[in-house]
Design a protein around this nucleic acid. Sequence first.
DNA 1: TCGATAGTTCAGCGATTATTGAAATATGGA
DNA 2: TCCATATTTCAATAATCGCTGAACTATCGA
Lengths: 120, 120
Amino acid sequence: MDSTTALTAFAALSQEGRLEVFRLLVKAGPDGLAAGLIAERVGRAPNTLSAQLNLLQQAGLIESRREGRSIIYSACFDQVSDLIVYLLEDCCAGEPCVAISVQAAADRALCCAPTSSTSS
Amino acid sequence: MDSTTALTAFAALSQEGRLEVFRLLVKAGPDGLAAGLIAERVGRAPNTLSAQLNLLQQAGLIESRREGRSIIYSACFDQVSDLIVYLLEDCCAGEPCVAISVQAAADRALCCAPTSSTSS
DNA sequence: TCGATAGTTCAGCGATTATTGAAATATGGA
DNA sequence: TCCATATTTCAATAATCGCTGAACTATCGA
């Protein structure tokens, strides 16, 4: 991930409403949520939300697919992990203290995670 | 790290100029750089830069100390690692694919890093 | 085809943000 | 004490951002 992409991602996450929407979609998992449902959950007008979703999508943090009359939004986990790796490598290379904390956090996440792809 | 703090950090990093300054300070390491030197490096007026440094500092991403007539700014690596952990845990808990990528990146960072605190 | 539902796009407005010049503060040396 | 250096603060302006109402597009079912 280059600086420009990271910048766009930071900008997308730098507003309360958008961060809230993003976190909601992350929690919703790969199945995602319909735009209308999101609007209802966060209590915002559909057009306001549409703009927020648009910005998150342009930053590559979420993606959309049509399903009947609804448009389903879901988080792009790849982009999030790229962003994290950017912060770790491109911003903090050479600072082991950061890498150590992050490694510990990743370990925790993996140990508690439901065994998904690699079972062993 | 709570959402509000993360929001402030994202906002601080969401502008080209500030991200540039932040990356410069990260590369400079714990010794940091004098405000005037940073201004020179990034080619911005001292007062403009002062505002940018202020914002980064309020977000907890950098800190300052006076040294003679200069004020030295340096990156707060703790805050960066907190931000990464926030993205990983609070945003992406339950998504092992993210944790796996991040773990690999942390491993790379540690293996290439100069052995610092824990020698063994 | 028509009407209802689900979302988006667009223009405009109010609010926030970024930058600038000028003035102020703090430090060190003569 | 006085001056030069290093940086910040302040007020003002220009640019950007976020939200809203109204109009538009797409899909489904009768």
